[in-house]
Structures are given as C-alpha cells and as structure tokens.
Design a binder for these strands. Sequence first.
DNA 1: TGCCACACGTTATAGCATTACGCAATTGAT
DNA 2: ATCAATTGCGTAATGCTATAACGTGTGGCA
Lengths: 134, 134
Amino acid sequence: MATQPLTRNQILVLDALTGAEGPLSAYTILDKLRDHGFRAPLQVYRALDKLRELGLVHRLESLNAFVACTQPHDHHTDHGVTAFAICEDCGQVDEMHDAGIEERLSVLAGVRHFKTEKTTIEIRGHCQNCSAAE
Amino acid sequence: MATQPLTRNQILVLDALTGAEGPLSAYTILDKLRDHGFRAPLQVYRALDKLRELGLVHRLESLNAFVACTQPHDHHTDHGVTAFAICEDCGQVDEMHDAGIEERLSVLAGVRHFKTEKTTIEIRGHCQNCSAAE
DNA sequence: TGCCACACGTTATAGCATTACGCAATTGAT
DNA sequence: ATCAATTGCGTAATGCTATAACGTGTGGCA
C-alpha cells in the first residue's frame, strides 16, 4: 500500500495547476509545459488521468478544465461529494463539502434504486469580490 | 406575454430529442436531421440555445449532450435546480428536483456571499434496471 | 421608406479529447 | 537469467464539440 511517487510529467502538470489562479484547460497546460518538453495533448491528458485517480486534481465539467484539489484532506481516502463554486468573472474556484447535500443525494438515488458512481455539482456565478465591484 | 411559437428548426430539434431514448449530442442531432435539410452544426446549436432558454431542453455538462425536459412543469416559470441521474449503461436520464438540496446549496453560497447564476448537478451511475441485470 | 430585430444558411476555424502505434523501463514469477 | 506482463512515455493522426464571421430574407413599425 505504499503510495507510488508521481512521475516527472505528473509533477509538472500538478505544479502548473497548483500555480495557476484558476482552472486550466488541457491545452493551456500543454502550452505552459512546452518549455519542459511537452509536445502533445496526450502527455497532459495521461498525467491528468492519473492525478484525478489519486484525488489530487478535479475536472470541472461545465468548463472543460481542471483544478488542483485545494482541500487539506488525506488524498488516499475518499472524501465524498465535492461541490464547486465557480466565479464567471475572475475564474476563481471554491471547493465545498456538505454532509446535508450528500444525504439528500443519497436519498434521491436510494428511492430510485440508482447506484451512484460519481457526482458532479458545479455552481456558476459571481464571487464576493467580483459582485462587490460592480 | 404571448409565448412565441417555435420555428421549424426548433421543432425539428425538439422532436429529435423527445423521440430519443437518451441524451443526444449536437452532432448526432445534426445527422438525424440531414434528411430535413440540416447541413451545419450551427443550425442545431442555435435551435438548442433557444430551446434551453425556454426551459424545454437541458444540457448535460458531463456528457456534452442534450435531453428534452421531461418534467410536467409550466415551462415559463423557473422551476429551480434540477439534478440528473444518468445511467452509464443504458443512457437513460432521470430528472429530479429536491428542495432540501436547493436549501443546502443556497446556504453554502450565502456563507460565501456567492451569487449563484446556474447550478449543475449530475449523478453518474447505474439505474435500477441495469444494476439488476448484472 | 428606412430601420431594426430576428431567424436562417454557409464556410471556416477554434477548442477539446482519443485512437493507434511503437519504444523503454520495471517488476515479478519461473 | 529470462520471459511475460505492466506501466509510462513520445508521436502522429484523427475525431468530436462549439463558435466566429460572413451574408440573406422577413416582418414589424416609426
């Protein structure tokens, strides 16, 4: 159960995401990493796949983009459903967890005998800073 | 406040979605409508935009695909947040509404002074039928 | 009549993701 | 030691999703 170390490519992609203000598309990451030898989209997608498996990176479906996980969790444990608040002005993403929502979702699924594999919750809107500055 | 009639293109796209078993991609719709004179993606996307404005069609972000709204609601009123249960086996989509979830989401946003514009909730998994037939 | 708004049609292009191929390094069992 | 299986890597080509930028036609209305 030793946690395998990240490969060079995976570290580069993760660093790019961690250093960014907001979510990045795969092709934006590719451009940022050309100087480090990246030449093809697949290099990015492969690293992203692994990082997502490890819970270090999330994909934002409504944006076709990726963010580094910002929660202080132990990444080797499942930490339930994540909801994202995405600011349409500044691009900032806030990662949220809420037991109440999980509970309701679990009920909704249960009533229908639906086996949940993965849940996506994304809230688009305007963060406090950006809605203040109108 | 008379509700404008749909155009020919909009009706064709809506019918395609209504007649389908599950969600359709824009390009799948395009192919289905070639016999009716459709030749370019934009014809589909423009109709979809309008239908979504009217609340007759939903976009599934995690699938890059579209479904006809199945709820018996009055479409001219906002009917809050919709959650989708999407079966990965048969493709069927179940549209759900839940006041409890809306409440929790509203609290999460409120605490952060985040102004919500649009909320996406999509649950991927296996429906009753498909998980029975294992 | 002139203006405006809107739907439409066409071409081209941009943006996102995967398939398919082959090579190299690692691991682990025989 | 060697073989097989696995895993990551690199490259090229392709496919899927969505929009930009044109121009046309029509209906309402001052």
